[in-house]
Design a binder for these strands. Sequence first.
DNA 1: TCAGTGAATAATTTATTGATTGTTCATTTT
DNA 2: AAAATGAACAATCAATAAATTATTCACTGA
Lengths: 218, 218
Amino acid sequence: MSESDTTREKIIDAARERFSHYGYPKTTIAELADDCAMSPGNIYRFFKGKIDIAVEIARREALSAVEVIEAVLDCPVRSSRQRLEEVVFADLRYTFHLLENRPKTLELAQIVVSDRPQFQIESLRRERRVFQRILHEGQASGEFFIENVASTTIALHAATTKYRYAQLFTNQTLAELERELAHVMTVIMRGLMPAKDGKPVAETIIPPEEAGQLANVS
Amino acid sequence: MSESDTTREKIIDAARERFSHYGYPKTTIAELADDCAMSPGNIYRFFKGKIDIAVEIARREALSAVEVIEAVLDCPVRSSRQRLEEVVFADLRYTFHLLENRPKTLELAQIVVSDRPQFQIESLRRERRVFQRILHEGQASGEFFIENVASTTIALHAATTKYRYAQLFTNQTLAELERELAHVMTVIMRGLMPAKDGKPVAETIIPPEEAGQLANVS
DNA sequence: TCAGTGAATAATTTATTGATTGTTCATTTT
DNA sequence: AAAATGAACAATCAATAAATTATTCACTGA
């Protein structure tokens, strides 16, 4: 790692610390420079402007959020259905706890999005790719019956909108949201899977929250 | 109608006019009093405070919005499925055009909700009742197969969250949203209706926009 | 040449003040 | 007695001044 890379990281670390403690607006470039034992001017050799530091932090945050969701893919499960349900519930829980425990993270994301609308579009796209992979697998294994995987992915993602950063829409508790999401998933799963012997697919069971799943949100 | 009722209506009319033209914050009680040829003090014999005038206007707006949606129920259609789809699309279109043509209406609603959170909860509940009626009908006629109508109503309503005041979530065009919603409804309908002869239910077709449907939004 | 500086400046935020507005109520009118 | 008034007062807003901050850049030391 080159010298200038570690300097850049030092700035990011200092910014992460201050942004999460005091928020983006109340953090000054002079403070970041102090933390890194350098002059304000030098910061601008690594970032075009203050907002770009926030963009970089939010970008990493978004990537690690998708990783949390993707981690669910790695654990062995019995079916694509279970995979899909676990990913959707993980999404609800991860974003819920994020807003609960680290409200400044949302604030930062909102500031970034208001300045760079493309940021949100790309974050959503990354998330959809996870969904798409699962649908594709389920399709290939014959578990799902899906005519058009691409458009069904979009539908699934849109139908679960309320369960991403749910506190922005409602003040329901997490338990209430989980119950609700189970109903949504029940309907969706019945839409994706053929009925067996004339009986519709069983209801979605709320998956248990894995212990390690939310390690980096505390 | 009593004298004091008509006075109250005069105030509401004046407020509606000014709120929609200049917005709630820029409208003063003195102006409303002027419009009604009365003194500021007299307004307070009819409303506890300025915000209560806004609440009353928003309440009526919300009721007439549900009426627009309910109007779809009155026209004869071939199936519960079609009813459901028309209601959901009407909701998307109505709220979309509302934000496009009368942004002050949203502003007012947001001001009311921030002061009276219960307002939003009740509006959503009213809307859900329309959904529930359709599901119930479809269930009774045997067209839908629904184990629990109440929880399925909640699921349906939650899954279509993105298509109520869609511009708050995305900057997609109405046409894009309609295409997306069709995909969502396709999955949901397959979840509600049993497959025929092993073939899944047909895809949702975007219903044509009725001419008279949006009369009071222009 | 490269990494870094810090004073100068432009842009933004905050504080202050004066003006406007929401609300009340003792009083007047009908 | 009911309906309405308008002056008084507290709360809020708008305008401006003052202070702070983001950003630039000519310059310094390795």
